[in-house]
Simulated scan of single mutants.
Amino acid sequence: MRCAVISRAGQVLANGYLMLHREEDGELRLDLRTDGGRLLQGGLIGDDGDMTAASQALFRQFFEVWGMSDVTLNVTIR
């Protein structure tokens, strides 16, 4: 899925793709690959498909990279 990470002020911090990455042990991880080539790893997706913890871990990565906790992830499905 195509997405944009947007600051509270409306500035686009990055464009990229949300993707599922299969770990060696078979578990799925929610990641974001930016158009600039950076890979931000989110958390593992629950066995029941719940992505809450995975997305929270991804947003923690946003804070690590951009130093902002109040960002929006705008997803476009084409």
Rank of each mutant, 00 (worst) to 15 (best):
M1S: 13
M1I: 09
M1H: 09
M1F: 12
R2A: 07
C3P: 06
C3V: 12
C3R: 03
C3S: 07
C3K: 06
A4D: 09
A4I: 07
V5Y: 05
I6E: 04
S7V: 06
S7Q: 04
S7L: 01
A9P: 09
A9N: 10
A9S: 12
G10W: 03
G10S: 04
V12M: 09
V12I: 15
V12G: 02
L13N: 02
A14Q: 08
A14C: 06
A14L: 01
A14T: 04
N15I: 10
N15A: 15
G16M: 03
Y17H: 13
L18A: 00
L18N: 00
M19R: 12
L20F: 04
L20R: 07
H21Q: 14
H21D: 08
H21A: 09
R22F: 07
E24S: 14
E24V: 11
D25Y: 03
D25C: 04
D25Q: 05
G26S: 05
G26H: 03
G26R: 06
E27R: 15
E27N: 12
E27S: 11
L28D: 08
L28R: 09
L28A: 07
R29W: 00
R29G: 00
L30A: 02
D31R: 07
L32K: 00
L32H: 01
R33Y: 05
R33I: 14
T34E: 05
D35E: 08
L40P: 03
Q41Y: 07
Q41F: 10
Q41T: 07
G42V: 02
G42K: 02
G42E: 00
G43C: 04
G43A: 05
I45T: 02
G46H: 13
G46D: 08
G46W: 08
D47C: 10
D47Q: 12
D48M: 04
D48G: 05
G49E: 03
D50E: 10
D50T: 09
D50S: 09
M51K: 10
M51E: 15
T52H: 07
A54S: 01
A54V: 00
A54F: 01
S55K: 11
S55A: 13
S55C: 11
S55Y: 12
Q56E: 13
A57K: 05
L58G: 02
L58K: 00
F59Q: 07
R60I: 05
R60T: 06
Q61R: 08
Q61H: 02
Q61A: 11
Q61S: 06
Q61E: 13
F62A: 06
F62N: 05
F63Q: 09
F63E: 15
F63W: 11
E64I: 09
W66M: 01
W66N: 02
W66C: 04
G67W: 03
G67T: 03
M68E: 13
S69K: 12
D70R: 07
D70F: 09
D70A: 10
V71Y: 07
V71R: 01
V71L: 05
V71F: 05
T72F: 12
T72A: 14
L73Q: 02
L73M: 01
L73I: 06
L73R: 02
L73P: 00
L73V: 04
N74G: 12
N74K: 15
N74Y: 15
V75A: 08
V75R: 01
T76D: 13
T76L: 14
I77K: 14
R78V: 13
R78I: 10
